[in-house]
Design a protein around this nucleic acid. Structure first.
Lengths: 183, 183
DNA sequence: GGAAGCATGTAAAATGTTACATGATTTT
DNA sequence: AAAATCATGTAACATTTTACATGCTTCC
């Protein structure tokens, strides 16, 4: 099952919604980490309904408009989503990680914390590689002027360093928030 | 022209390479921000050769292997890449931004700095939205336990906050590095 | 003897984007 | 009078992923 389907489930796990509602939420400013379009949306909903992951809650037309189809997640849908959230996921796929964290309220701290610790470990590993590589480039070349290709190489690596540090810090905070059971 | 083509140009702007070399570099640990596969790679190279953006530098077979085709960027290729790098680019597309920065050594500080300042401004705007939204959710709901959907909403926004702060910090550093003309 | 590396490329499948189609209502 | 909003959906196109295809050499 592709990520969009899980993205849709993650919204329906919170409240019943119509396809139109889901699109609004996804393409809005907050939770804007995943965009969707009609051609992914409606076939996905039909498919998931066929698989018994979601079901129609209501199907009412408000006077003139096309009938608004409000969906609700099923027990099977919740289980499917939970299983996906509890799975480690490809290293380095930030979108997927964020999407999973958006549904991490569904899983137990005992399951979530090891996932976060593993994720942190991975970021630490990559951070070490980046800092080593940036240091090596600087040592071997001395001060780099901004018209040097290696200048750009280093600044891009520095961005990676910033990203990894931020991720590690977030994992630390998250582990603490979950352990304290509050934010 | 799609981003992969520019990614390939950004490598060839630094040194002549074969398709195989480019794939190794892209899927390697450093500069791993853009992955490519054969079906994008070889047709793209053929297309860009047809457009005069790159040209064959050598085409030699080492005894048994398929002949290694080493490409070199043309003057037109450099100009095309520079024009792309100097263009503002879609807000929020981090991959594209990173890719452009990887070739920012090609453009003048007078062109680059305004781009960085505009980028910083955009990140500041989004940061303000995220912090406002996180604060609102916390105020309206009090302490959130880790089994509450809003807990996950807040932690995801906090990740966004971390990302935006990191981006702003990087822009600040980058502007300084370019102005000082050294890193 | 099998796996991995070099090096090119193609085919098929999945996924994603853009545009179109309907149609009444409300806002500009 | 035109544009935007609600609400569903489809068609055509572009892009991306995964797998296949060749074939010789070197490493385990």
């Amino acid at each position: 099952m592709s990520s969009i389907q899980y993205a849709l489930l993650s919204l329906l796990a919170r409240e019943p919604l119509s396809g139109y509602d889901m699109k609004q939420q996804m393409n809005g400013r907050f939770t804007a980490f995943y965009k969707i379009n009609n051609n992914q949306l409606y076939p996905s909903l039909a498919k998931m309904e066929g698989e018994g992951l979601i079901e129609l809650l209501s199907h009412e037309r408000e006077s003139y408009r096309p009938a608004r189809k409000v969906y609700k997640i099923t027990e099977a849908g919740i289980e499917s989503l939970k299983a996906w959230v509890a799975q480690p996921g490809k290293p380095g796929d930030w979108e997927e990680f964020l999407l999973k964290q958006y549904s991490s309220w569904l899983i137990e701290p005992e399951v979530l914390i090891p996932l976060l610790e593993e994720n942190k470990r991975q970021h630490e590993e990559i951070l070490a590689e980046y800092t080593a590589r940036a240091a090596m480039l600087r040592e071997q070349n001395g001060p780099l002027t901004s018209d040097n290709p290696l200048f750009s190489t280093v600044v891009v690596i520095e961005m990676g360093v910033g990203f990894e540090r931020m991720s590690i810090e977030w994992c630390d905070n998250m582990i603490r928030w979950v352990k304290e059971n509050r934010i």
